[in-house]
Design a protein around this nucleic acid. Structure first.
Length: 157
DNA sequence: GCCAACGTTGGC
DNA sequence: GCCAACGTTGGC
């Protein structure tokens, strides 16, 4: 099997769980859970693999944009929260045999020295086709290698 | 707080 | 299966 690394963008609200929360975890690692959208679920379950690189995007906040980079360290497994009656993410339709929702584990790779705001991304001509803009509400979004490289250069520049 | 975009639900 | 109503996301 040919190993193909993929690039992604995962959204989170920094008030709820931002990049500094991840940085404060014991191994700077966490479970990316609570995804309750079918398209995002399908990406997580079927496409996201160990070694994939992930942009940490802060949404629904005063300064939406990219905060850093994570790496996938564990591929999709059933999100335990769907079975947890106490959880906001409990789903009565989910069973152990037929889980509805999946999670992956991610590890912090780097926090950007400078936050890269959404406004800068929107202004860059090479990023005009980003799926982030076309499907604004999707919380797990593919990023192309070209887009990734553009973003890397913006972070350095 | 407003609003656009879009996903979900439920009646038929 | 269609579609209206409603809910949620997320930028501004």
């Amino acid at each position: 099997m040919v190993f193909e690394m993929n690039y992604w963008l995962f959204k989170s609200e920094p008030d709820v769980y931002g990049i500094d929360h991840l940085a404060a975890e014991p191994l700077q690692q966490c479970r990316w859970d609570g995804i309750r959208n079918y398209q995002a679920r399908n990406f997580l379950r079927d496409k996201v693999q160990v070694g994939d690189q992930v942009l940490f995007y802060h949404s629904s906040c005063p300064r939406p944009g990219m905060a850093g980079v994570m790496e996938v360290v564990k591929a999709a497994y059933p999100d335990p929260a769907q079975f947890d009656l106490e959880s906001d993410y409990f789903d009565p339709k989910a069973t152990q045999d037929k889980p509805q929702w999946y999670a992956v584990d991610v590890k912090l790779r780097k926090k950007f020295a400078r936050h890269l705001p959404l406004s800068a991304l929107k202004a860059h001509p090479d990023l005009k086709d980003m799926m982030l803009f076309r499907q604004g509400r999707l919380s797990v979004v593919p990023v192309t290698m070209a887009e990734w490289q553009t973003i890397e250069s913006m972070v350095k520049g």
